[in-house]
Design a binder for these strands. Structure first.
Lengths: 331, 331
DNA sequence: CTGTTAGCGCTTTCAA
DNA sequence: TTGAAAGCGCTAACAG
């Protein structure tokens, strides 16, 4: 490993000059040229570890997701990774396996490695473990879920509004027996989506009663079970609030010999672009996950660079509703 | 930030002793106890950057994937991440966006950050850019694709064998007009899978002619187009060699008003578990991606710890064939 | 603008 | 076993 010292010697200048050159300070053109040449012929590469030790900056950011194994996470990570790398930052990735208990350990794991900023996803503000974020000396950005500590920015989706619109479309199509496959209401996202559905009913002067709300556990199986219940109740339309769950729901419909989106009106949240491979194509709400990732990366970097870890903004990104043909008009 | 010095002062020992304590050396019980207490009351955390500078080990490994945005990548990353973290290692993630030209830059990006080991995926041995791996002073593991440099271990799947078996089942079912939606033969994986299909034909005394091989470009659209061609040619069965492509193929079948796996026998490689949501359920070959990730992590760590970067083994993991009902018997 | 030098927090000789 | 001290590669005063 060639060091700054050797470059200095080769170029016949002091290490200070080399360091300054490397950091973009002006120096005598002649010296600059000699240093540049030395760097080239010696194939010098700067030692980021030494730099980090001295400057207390690692040029890395931590990313703590609920679960690494999902399309959401890979899309977010892909977008962030690209952005960070262009900016010279690396990304330390970690997942807490949907288990809040692990959050503290994971955050320590990351901060121990000297990350300059942290992005977390799907952490509920009222978890005890979320409180560790309060004392962090680095910028934090929360994804999907709002955390209203003054030090944290939150980036959300407009799930409620979109759910409301889609369910409203079902109602407008004459549907009254509409099942909602929702998720545990302890989760912010689940609350949002169900609230959207309820709003649609209220606006139409109707009420969404409990028997038409099935609470899943995010598994495919629970989507399968929920759909079975609704078919028994002679639902004419079902909205599924979660991607994975929706696969189970679709499976149930098919197994009953029904055609999704025709014999049973259907819509769901989707990341995979699964809606297109059916016929009729399925109406889906798609979250701009890549955008979210990129915006998250941009936001932390700004906070890191401006050294202003505190702001506390909340930004809501608009989902896209892919209106297709799976909500039948039965008026 | 409390340092080793402060701990030493508090415990009334030298920094050397604290360092030795931290690294598991034996010292006078009394001293050890005092140090332990100092660490506790001062809430000392070791500075990994300083440690890394001194010891030339960052306790991190680089992971360079073709593309971060796929189920393959998230599954592999999830498995590796878990394993690494348990072992105290962090993971620097990077993708080269399916563009070999980027490989050199990305590898430098990672090595500049002092990674102790590197895992790469889907890099073809004959790419010029792959040669940079030759000079790396750290252990390297190649995923999915064999790289026979003596310094590199390769972890592969038995795609050829599985493709052969599935296509053989189609032939056994009486199918003769079998379409294979394959991928560019410049890619190792694509060659393997097509070779498997050809082998099945040969074993049956048949021949797989060019008109029954459609070369996709990994896009959904090309699956869509390939399937259209085969439907025109009155294929009775189609095997799709790539996950994403298979979605397009399914879409085409549905749009023709046909039922996948019934009107058109069908099988494909799958990661998403998409085969189950159809009726009939689809026969799919599934790669043990999580296993691969874990084995990869294990392998690099062993190489890092044994300080034996050279071995050059190749291991083949067995895929799982999920036999379902989408290959009809037409004899 | 440049050279010298004191550390950043840690590990690891070397003596004691 | 332990303490003292050198030094990993770099940055940032400080003095010139």
């Amino acid at each position: 490993m060639v060091t700054i010292q050797e470059v200095a010697k080769y170029a016949n200048v002091s290490v200070g000059s080399v360091s300054r050159y490397l950091n973009g300070y002006k120096l005598r053109p002649n010296n600059a040229k000699r240093i540049e040449e030395a760097i080239r012929v010696l194939d010098y590469r700067e030692n980021m570890i030494a730099k980090a030790l001295k400057s207390n900056q690692t040029l890395s950011v931590g990313v703590l997701l609920d679960n690494l194994l999902s399309h959401f996470s890979s899309a977010v990570v892909a977008a962030m990774g690209d952005f960070f790398e262009k900016q010279g930052y690396s990304m330390l990735l970690s997942g807490y396996r949907d288990d809040p208990k692990q959050v503290r350990r994971k955050v320590e794991f990351l901060t121990d490695r000297g990350i300059d900023g942290l992005i977390v996803a799907t952490m509920e503000e009222d978890w005890e473990e979320t409180q560790v974020l309060r004392e962090l000396a680095i910028p934090v950005v929360s994804l999907v879920t709002p955390i209203t500590f003054e030090s944290i920015d939150s980036l959300l989706f407009d799930d409620a509004a979109c759910t409301r619109k889609v369910v409203a479309a079902m109602i407008a199509g004459g549907h009254r027996r509409i099942g909602i496959i929702s998720a545990p209401q302890t989760d912010f996202v689940a609350r949002q989506r169900l609230a959207g559905a309820k709003a649609a009913f209220e606006e139409a002067g109707l009420e969404l009663t409990d028997e038409w709300v099935y609470v899943n556990d995010y598994s495919r199986e629970s989507g399968y079970a929920g759909m079975r219940q609704f078919i028994k109740q002679h639902a004419t339309a079902v909205f599924v609030c979660n991607q994975n769950t929706s696969l189970g729901a679709i499976q149930q419909i098919q197994e009953q010999g029904l055609i999704v989106g025709q014999d049973m009106s259907f819509a769901a949240f989707d990341y995979l672009g699964i809606g297109e491979i059916f016929y009729p194509k399925l109406t889906m709400v798609r979250q701009p996950v890549g955008e979210l990732g990129q915006l998250a990366a941009k936001t932390v970097l700004e906070k890191i660079r401006n050294k202003q870890p505190y702001s506390g903004k909340t930004i809501e990104l608009a989902n896209e509703i892919l209106w297709r043909d799976s909500i039948q008009d039965i008026t």
